[in-house]
Design a protein around this nucleic acid. Structure first.
Lengths: 234, 234
DNA sequence: AACGATTAAGTGGTTAACCAGTTTTAGAAA
DNA sequence: TTTCTAAAACTGGTTAACCACTTAATCGTT
């Protein structure tokens, strides 16, 4: 599905290299909070890359609050100490190391919480939506087709019902990578897909009955296979 | 610090509108997985926006695995059912609703986990880094200056020591918004900043002694004020 | 009429030119 | 020398042109 991963990561490597160069520049020139960076044109010339690349790198640093671009004026170092800035850039550059284990660990943490919140806060509309995804998954799994996406949509419906926008966003964020990794590591075979139906139903029932503790336990049971798979193989 | 929030959100509103239009188009034309979307140029003309805007919208949908752009060929609907596609786009469009409460709720969930993981997995290097941030925070808080950033850097150091790249990334992701919201709602006054020193030290000691349960409890104590503040005021 | 080769049109990706607004500089008046 | 003004240079943001490549169409040959 995603054969262009190499190209993407190439671009990202260039961007990370650029971010590192910008950091070095800030250190070399002893730029303090509020000081102005060289213009995008100068940076693109100095680093021998296109201006677009420089812009993307700056935008990323801007997103994390380390730089601030003012239109028709310049890009400035944010109000953050030089040590902190270096540390945060280190973190940002290491962000790519999102191994499968971290991903699954985080997903389990999020889902054990969202399923509790969903049990407590769900509306009738939320419940109907979850049921809809449950049925779609059951149909696909029983027919023997690949049902990874329907599986995840069920979980996303729960995240939506949790009423927590941030967790919902995080679930959406990790979902594409999970789909890729599941395909790569062949996590889900058809037996597990069929077994998953009953587990999904149990989770749904608990949410329906608004019982957060049972819901959490059923979700934990549902993840036990994945948890073991992940920690044994990788 | 971020006075251009309105402009940014304006751009994002346009982008969301575009995403919605693209969704409508897919539904209207009954495009199925694998079908080709109209070219970026045609879309930009049809929706009366610049091609750059169209590209950004497509890239966002591509990030979530809903579309797939092939160079010199076209943009295609991913291998996902039309119902699922509509549902996920709904979710994506609602992503902006990240209220302060959701943010804090998620942060607490993440931090109670990362502090446990950090206690178990920390290296000596990690510990030294955490200590460094602890000292920087103490110095700033005692001097009466605003120490929100040093506070968060301490927590980010813990996230880093957790050895979970995904959680670390999520912490980094929410940090800028937390800084903004703290400024907006005036969460941290100087008394709390000084009180926080002892709490930070307690957390650090637990991590140093590699005691995950105490570490988690101390973190929970540390968040009790924030938790109440958040749930009472908003 | 059917097939193959060649050309034309169309695609996403990239680069260079342009824009409106800011900042510095040069210049003239006091 | 100082100060006010005006113009030139510079900034991030945006748009239009260009590129390499793919795909569809067209024409010629069999």
């Amino acid at each position: 599905m995603k054969l262009d991963t190499l190209i993407v990561s190439d671009n990202q490597k260039v961007q990370n290299l650029l971010i590192d160069k910008i950091r070095e520049l800030i250190n070399y020139k002893n730029l303090e909070p509020g000081d102005k960076l060289p213009s995008e044109r100068m940076l693109s010339e100095k680093f021998e890359v296109s201006r677009g690349m420089v812009r993307e790198a700056i935008q990323k640093l801007e997103f994390y609050g380390l730089l601030e671009s003012k239109p028709q004026s310049g890009t400035f170092v944010a109000n953050i100490g030089i040590i902190a800035l270096n540390g945060m850039i280190d973190d940002i550059l290491r962000l790519e190391e999102q191994d499968f284990k971290s991903l699954v660990e985080t997903r389990i943490l999020l889902e054990l919480k969202t399923v509790k919140l969903a049990s407590l806060r769900r509306s009738e509309e939320d419940l109907a939506h979850i049921k809809e995804m449950l049925d779609a998954y059951e149909k696909k799994a029983l027919s023997g087709e690949d049902a990874v996406q329907e599986d995840l949509l069920f979980h996303l419906a729960i995240a939506k019902a949790s009423g927590n926008g941030t967790m919902n966003k995080f679930m959406l964020t990790i979902t594409p990578q999970i789909i890729i990794d599941f395909g790569k590591y062949h996590v889900c075979d058809k037996n597990q897909a069929v077994l998953g139906i009953a587990e999904h139903k149990a989770i749904y029932e608990a949410i329906k009955e608004q019982n957060p503790d049972i819901a959490r336990q059923k979700m934990k049971d549902h993840f036990s296979v994945l948890y073991q798979y992940c920690y044994n193989s990788k």
